[in-house]
Design a protein around this nucleic acid. Sequence first.
RNA 1: CGGGAUGUGGCGCAGCUUGGUUAGCGCGCCUGCUUUGGGAGCAGGAGGCCGCGGGUUCGAAUCCCGCCAUCCCGACCA
Length: 479
Amino acid sequence: MAGERRGVIPQSEDFSAWYNEIVFRAELVDRGPVRGTMVVRPYGYRIWELLQADIDRRIKETGHVNAYFPLLIPESYLRREAEHVAGFAPELAVVTHAGGRELDEPLVVRPTSETVIGEMMARWIGSHRDLPMLLNQWANVVRWEMRPRMLLRTTEFLWQEGHTAHVDEAGALRETMLALGLYADVAREVAAMPVVEGEKTEGERFPGARQTFTVEAMMRDGRALQSGTSHYLGTNFARAFGIRYTAESGALEYCHTTSWGMSSRMLGGVIMTHGDDRGLVLPPALAPYQVVIVPIGHGDQAAAVQTAAADLTVRLRRAGIRAHLDDRPHVSPGFKFNDWELRGVPIRLELGPRDLADGAALMATRLGACKTAVPLPSAPERLTDELAAFQALLLRRATDFRDSRTRPADTWAEFTDAVRTGWTLAFHCGSPECEDEIKAETAATPRCIPSDGPPEGGRCVRCDGDSAYGRRLIFGRSY
RNA sequence: CGGGAUGUGGCGCAGCUUGGUUAGCGCGCCUGCUUUGGGAGCAGGAGGCCGCGGGUUCGAAUCCCGCCAUCCCGACCA
């Protein structure tokens, strides 16, 4: 009976059903009352906070400052940049009534903030001495989605958007690449997601951008997830909003601007990169509880176990470990084991009378098959090491997985075969029509032109035209 | 927007074909006792505008019409 099924639907059976079940059962999110909206529950929000804190620190360390811009934007602002409005028009939510009457000018709920921020930058920037202007905001944005997927594509989501203005193209491009590198570092070091840095092709570019860069990650079903993007906007928005400065020479010049963002979608990436058939697997850096201690009490021994477990919890916390004592009464140890595994806790410590007699706790890692005794006196040091090893293991495991599902394709047959299970590296002619044909036939799209791809010549895998990028592109199906 | 499906306690479902007394079951929840080393047992208990509106009928969860919502598959998509 379905209601009695205790495990989750296996990934191999139905990856998308597995994903859905995980996000709800692990209590990361719930559905909001409006289609496509999402409630981030405390456990999920804690993960977001940990990710957010890390990103925020890195953003500040590189000289950016946080600010906040309004949710509502005059519709006319969007129109000022032709490509921008064309790109976003289908997913805009528009406010037409307020204060009990129809508004003279409709307001859009921000899908992103280039326009308002551009307007304000134009007001704040006068001279080259005001540059570069390095801003960031943490905000929610709304993009109407026809096919929502929790955390990956919801109508409203949380993100960080950096917006900067520079004197010239070189400065703005340097910034664009700095943000991209920051995202790659966050993905690898915090989320344990190996990402490929690269540039988007014309067809996949941000509306209004000169160049769009991305970090792409592979999920366990072989599909790609764009996990962060960074755009060089040229002077497009500067011209649309009058972001100008007086140069040293006295000439009035347009700024070169950038924007870049990483969102709550990243949590979906973490789930699909590391999760397995027992549930979530969280990298220690993002785990609300890195170590959960399950006391196992037998009648009159319960008190001694409780004391020891509480003491252990405190000692782990003093060592900087996010430790949690699961002292729920009337919930069996077996239930707790499964519960915390579903929720992705990296390490579990079992503490019962037998362990107490040995002066140790029994350690089970989320990915390990067996349990190991850990002497209580050295537990804090030992667990600090174990957590670091676990974090490293996740990255290595995900990297191996990605590499095993990525192969070059020089023929159309190799191409179609490769994108069924993962990514392929192939030459392309650069024509958008050719990209569309590939997409129509295989559902695969160019994910990026890898920054570190070796220069190489060849023929387009689809139409045999000249390779347009001087190297192979990554193709794959994506979220 | 097209195709398919589903709406019944918090969750998962049965009942509907062939209308009929008090709408069932599992999980969860509450109380008590016994338990606790991989999803505990027993006993008792609470909880329902059967998606919404109309119609047929002595009588509708069940039949008819309309609407709404959600999910899946497409198309679309930072």
